[in-house]
Nucleic acid binder design. Structure first.
Length: 356
DNA sequence: AAAACGGGGTT
DNA sequence: AACCCAGTTTT
């Protein structure tokens, strides 16, 4: 006990009240039905920046399709991406499969249980490493996410900016001192449940909180103003023309995105930055980016799609082509009912309704 | 240290 | 429209 913030902190009492509350109130979540490290791993990757309610159906489908590390290691990466379709942060899916392949190749299919080995796997950072070690292997390792920082910033009245990297390390040392050595799995999950249901970002339910008596922020009536977090930059708008191009066999042109950057390896309808679009005097498409010979028919609508750092402003047009084959290797002609085999970002899934 | 990387929900 | 979020990798 070297740190001032914990000098007078009743660690034993805090643990006891938190764990009792967790035992009586823990949520019944699909990944809590076993301690299978692979299942814990998949759930934790899916839960990064993603709500529980969103993850649950994906988790069920994923486990049905890839029940163990071996099925996932053997899978076609496009099928993994398809299983991830709509979840976002698609590098998570690619990194997860790469890491699982390493587990099969280097660790005989057993998910490692040491911080060093686990942390060396693709997509497993400090948080996920701690979550797997504590939940699957019951090791007293911190798993510091947004919930933990929010709960601890209030309980201990920490006023550092939680958007800063060094602040995360600060919380790591606090959790390392306060975590239950007897039941680190329940301790970490209890903090997450508490942050999710009681110690919420807005209007926390302090009157229902099992650890209210330990909370400095509550005692001082400042729970609403913690944690301190610097604001994110505003997104930059980027405008595109999107083309729903059909040939006379009712096949549609789709395009595979780059294997790097935003929405890597997903498919989309051809999309051109609006400032690179050329129209002739009778309104014909003259941009030859894809080597396509097309005729624009009608504007189908506008779509706005917000990312964390960009806002797409999309103008959607219906078009037709006489071509039966394509020269650009990024492009593919696919019948309407075949589109569902390819992983699309949510923005382009929404355009499917325009072609019914 | 900052930016890139999705999507959905709440206020 | 602004704000929130069960993070990791790349630059």
């Amino acid at each position: 006990m070297t740190d001032k913030a914990l000098q007078y902190f009743d660690t034993a009492g805090f643990q006891q009240d938190l764990l009792k509350w967790y035992d009586e109130n823990k949520r019944d979540l699909p990944w809590r039905k076993s301690q299978d490290p692979y299942k814990i791993w998949v759930s934790e990757i899916m839960l990064q920046q993603t709500k529980v309610d969103t993850v649950i159906p994906y988790f069920h489908r994923f486990m049905e399709q890839f029940p163990t590390v071996y099925e996932l290691a053997d899978a076609d990466p496009q099928d993994v991406l398809k299983a991830w379709e709509g979840l976002g942060y698609y590098s998570r899916a690619r990194n997860l499969q790469n890491a699982v392949r390493e587990v099969v190749a280097e660790y005989g299919g057993k998910v490692p249980d040491t911080p060093r080995e686990l942390g060396s796997l693709k997509g497993i950072g400090p948080y996920t490493k701690g979550a797997i070690l504590s939940i699957a292997y019951n090791k007293p390792e911190p798993a510091v996410d947004g919930n933990v920082m929010r709960v601890f910033s209030r309980v201990l009245k920490i006023e550092e900016d939680i958007a800063q990297q060094r602040t995360k390390k600060l919380f790591d040392t606090y959790v390392r001192e306060v975590i239950s050595e007897e039941d680190p799995s329940s301790f970490n999950q209890a903090i997450m449940d508490l942050g999710s249901s009681i110690c919420t970002p807005k209007s926390p339910a302090c009157l229902l909180c099992p650890v209210q008596e330990y909370c400095i922020a509550f005692a001082e009536g400042m729970e609403e103003s913690l944690p301190i977090k610097s604001k994110a930059k505003k997104q930059k708008p980027k405008a595109y023309v999107v083309l729903l191009i059909k040939n006379d066999k009712s096949e549609y042109v789709i395009e595979k995105r780059s294997d790097k950057g935003l929405l890597a390896d997903l498919w989309q309808f051809p999309m051109v930055p609006i400032d690179e679009v050329g129209w002739d005097h009778v309104g014909n498409w003259v941009n030859d980016e894809y080597g396509l010979d097309i005729k624009i028919n009608a504007k189908k609508g506008n779509l706005k799609h917000v990312f964390s750092h960009i806002i797409w402003q999309l103008e959607i047009y219906e078009a037709e082509t006489q071509q039966q084959e394509l020269t650009d290797e990024r492009l593919l002609l696919v019948e309407k009912d075949g589109l569902e085999r390819y992983p699309f970002p949510v923005s382009h899934q929404k355009m499917m309704s325009y072609i019914k």
